[in-house]
Design a protein around this nucleic acid. Structure first.
Lengths: 350, 350
DNA sequence: CTGAAAGCGCTTACAG
DNA sequence: CTGAAAGCGCTTACAG
C-alpha cells in the first residue's frame, strides 16, 4: 500500500486537512507546521494519488496528443516507409510537447489515429474521459472532425495545421513559406519551375499553391499547368510526380519545388535511377526540414518550419487555456526559415 | 457534469450497485436488467470515471512508454539530426505499442528521457504514480537503471534491449543478426570487411562484435583490428568512422558492416563527398531497417529487426504480467531478416 | 492556524 | 438476482 495523507497526518500529529493544505502550499498553514509535514511526507515517500485528486477536483490531470495518420495499411509500420505517410515529422512535433508537458503537473497520453477512410475515429483517451485537452498534430483533418473532438473537450490545439475559428492553432504561413522557396529558385536563375503540391485534402495546399503563383507572378514568369501537380505526402508520390513531369514534358523544368521533404527525397530516387543529377541537372527544394533532408545526398535545401517553436507555442496555448477556459481562441503563426544546403544550383553565375 | 452510475441508477430504477455490476458484465445481474441498464447508459452517454475506478480498485489504468534519448542538447530537436541520436527508431517501436494499447482498457503515457549524463532521471509518469507498468525502448540503459524503475513498479518490459533477469525483455539475437549481415558480404565475395560497431555503452555491442568475429572466423578471414571501431548512434559518428578507416588504411576495405542504419547512411555522406561510389567502390550494410535505409540512394541493404513484432510481443508480455503479476520474467527473441536492396556489390560474378 | 465532516464516482463484500 | 453500506485518497467549505 502506498502512503497517503492519513499516514502523514498520524506521523506528524495533525489532521488530514492540514496535511492537504500543507502539501498544496496553502497560506493558511503556519510555515513551521508546513515544513514539518513536508519533511514527514518526504521521509515516507508520499506521492499524491492522481485519481483521487481528479475525482475530488473534477479536473483531469492528463493531456493527449494525437498523430493523424494517413495512407497506411492498418497499423502496419512495415509495408515500406517509402509508400506511406512519413511519421517522424509527427514525432518531432510531439517530442517537444512531451518534454514541455513533463515539466508540468500533467501527464501526456499519445495515440495514432487513422483518418481519411470514411468514418473518423476518435482517440480513445478522449472518449474514455482521460484528458483535459488534446493536441492535434497534422494538417489532414477537417473542421467537422475538430467539432467531433469538441464534443469531449473545449481545449483543442491544432499544431501545424491551418487557422480555425473553433480552436487554438499554431502554424506557419504556408503561402509565405512556399513563396520564399520558389523565390529562392528564381533568384538562382531558374525560370522553368515545377511545383509538386501536397494532398488536395490537406488544409495547407491552397495556401501553398498561392505562394507558388505569387512568386512566379512577381518574377513575371509564366505558369505551365503541366508543371503543377498534387501528390500525397509519401516518397512514392514524389517519385511518381517527377516521373510524370519529366517523362511528359518536352523540355524538363530546371527546378522543382516540393511542398514536403518526403516527396522531394522520394523524387531523388527517380533522379538517381535515371541518371539525372541533383543539383547539376535539376535543382530541388523541399519544405519542412525533416531528418530525411539532412541525410540525403546531396543534402536537401528546404524550409525549416521551426518545429520546436511550433511545439513550444502549442504547449503555452494549452496551458493558458487550461488556466483560463474562457479566453478566445488564438492563432499563432511561427516564423520559418530557408535552410540552404546542396540541392539547388546557381544558374546565374554560370 | 458528466453522467455517473447514480444518474443511470435513477433513470433505470435500480441501485448503483446493480448498475456497476451490469456495466462490468457481472453474471449476478439478470440479462434483462443488464440490457436495460446498458441501454440507459448508452443513451445518457455514460463514461466511467477512470480516477474513481483507480481509487477503489487500487490499480492504475495507464501504462507508460519511455524513449531513452542520448547525445542531445537539452530537448532541442533542431541542432542537426545528423549529429544526434536518431529518434524515429523509437517512434517506430512506440507506434506499434500505441496502436495495441489503445485497444485495451489502458491509456498510454509517453516521455523522452535523457540518460547517460551523470544521474539517471526517471520519467515523471512513474514518480507521480500514474502508471501500472512501463515500456523501456532502447539499449542505452544499465541494470542499475532498471532497478531504479523497479522501485516504482514491477512491470517493466524492455523493448529492443538485452536479456535481463529482473524484467521482461523483447529483443533480437544481435550476434546472429550481425553474423548474417557479415556473412552476406562474405557470400558476395568480400574479404576485407570493416565493422563499425555501436556505442560501447550499448548493451548490444558485445553481442554484435561477436557476430562479426564469428562470421569472419567461419570464413577463415583474418580480422584487421584497424577495421573494427566503435561509434555512437548518429550519422556524424558513421561519417567519422569511415573517414578514419578510409584515410588511414593503405588498402581500403571493400565492404563495411554498420551496427545501425543511421551510421551507414551517415557514412554515405562521406562516400558521396569523396567520390567513392556505393556499391561500386564500397559495399555497405546496415542494421535496423529504418526509413533512412529506404530513402537513401542507393537504397541500403540491411537487417530488418521486425519492429512490429517486437512491439507486439512487448504488449503481450505487459498485458500478461498485469493479469498474472507472479509469473516469472520472460525473454522473447524476435526473428530478424535480411533485406537486400542496393548497397552491396556482388564480387563473385565479376 | 487547525480539525471534523462531507463528498467526488466508483467497487466490493455482505445481507436479504 | 438486487440493494444498502462502507470506503478508496483526496479537497473544500465550515466551525472553532
Amino acid at each position: 500500500m502506498a502512503v497517503t495523507i492519513k499516514d502523514i497526518a498520524r506521523e506528524a500529529g495533525v489532521s488530514k486537512s492540514t496535511v492537504s493544505a500543507a502539501m498544496n502550499d496553502s497560506p493558511k498553514v503556519k510555515n513551521e507546521t508546513k515544513e514539518r509535514i513536508k519533511k514527514v511526507a518526504e521521509r515516507l515517500g508520499y506521492v499524491p494519488h492522481i485519481g483521487a485528486r481528479e475525482l475530488i477536483t473534477n479536473k483531469k490531470l492528463n493531456l493527449g496528443i494525437m498523430n493523424l495518420i494517413t495512407y497506411q495499411a492498418d497499423g502496419d509500420i512495415k509495408n515500406s516507409y517509402f509508400n506511406q505517410a512519413y511519421e517522424p515529422t509527427y514525432y518531432d512535433m510531439a517530442s517537444v510537447i512531451m518534454t514541455e508537458i513533463s515539466k508540468t503537473k500533467y501527464g501526456l497520453l499519445i495515440e495514432r489515429i487513422q483518418i481519411g477512410q470514411g468514418e473518423l475515429s476518435l482517440p480513445s483517451f478522449l472518449t474514455s474521459g482521460r484528458v483535459a485537452g488534446v493536441f492535434v498534430v497534422g494538417t489532414m483533418h477537417t473542421r467537422d472532425y475538430i467539432m467531433r473532438l469538441k464534443e469531449y473537450t473545449d481545449n483543442v490545439v491544432v499544431v501545424g495545421g491551418n487557422k480555425s475559428d473553433i480552436c487554438d492553432c499554431v502554424r506557419n504561413d504556408y503561402t509565405q513559406a512556399i513563396y520564399t522557396a520558389v523565390r529562392y529558385l528564381i533568384d538562382n536563375g531558374h525560370k522553368s519551375i515545377a511545383f509538386v503540391n501536397g494532398d488536395t485534402l490537406s488544409q495547407a495546399s491552397d495556401d501553398k499553391l498561392l505562394g507558388y503563383k505569387l512568386a512566379m507572378a512577381d518574377a513575371n514568369l509564366p505558369i505551365d499547368s503541366n508543371l503543377v501537380v498534387n501528390a500525397r505526402f509519401t516518397g512514392r508520390a514524389g517519385y511518381d510526380a517527377v516521373r510524370k513531369i519529366f517523362e511528359s514534358s518536352k523540355k524538363a523544368p530546371t527546378a522543382v519545388c516540393f511542398s514536403a521533404d518526403v516527396m522531394a527525397v522520394g523524387a531523388m530516387r527517380y533522379f538517381y535511377e535515371n541518371g539525372i543529377r541533383v543539383p547539376d541537372d535539376v535543382s530541388i527544394i523541399g519544405f519542412e526540414d525533416t531528418c530525411l533532408a539532412e541525410f540525403s545526398n546531396p543534402q536537401l535545401t528546404t524550409i525549416d518550419r521551426n518545429k520546436r517553436r511550433l511545439g513550444l507555442e502549442a504547449c503555452r496555448l494549452m496551458l493558458s487555456k487550461l488556466e483560463n477556459p474562457k479566453r478566445g481562441f488564438q492563432d499563432i503563426v511561427v516564423p520559418f526559415s530557408l535552410v540552404i544546403r546542396g540541392s539547388v544550383k546557381d544558374l546565374t553565375s554560370k
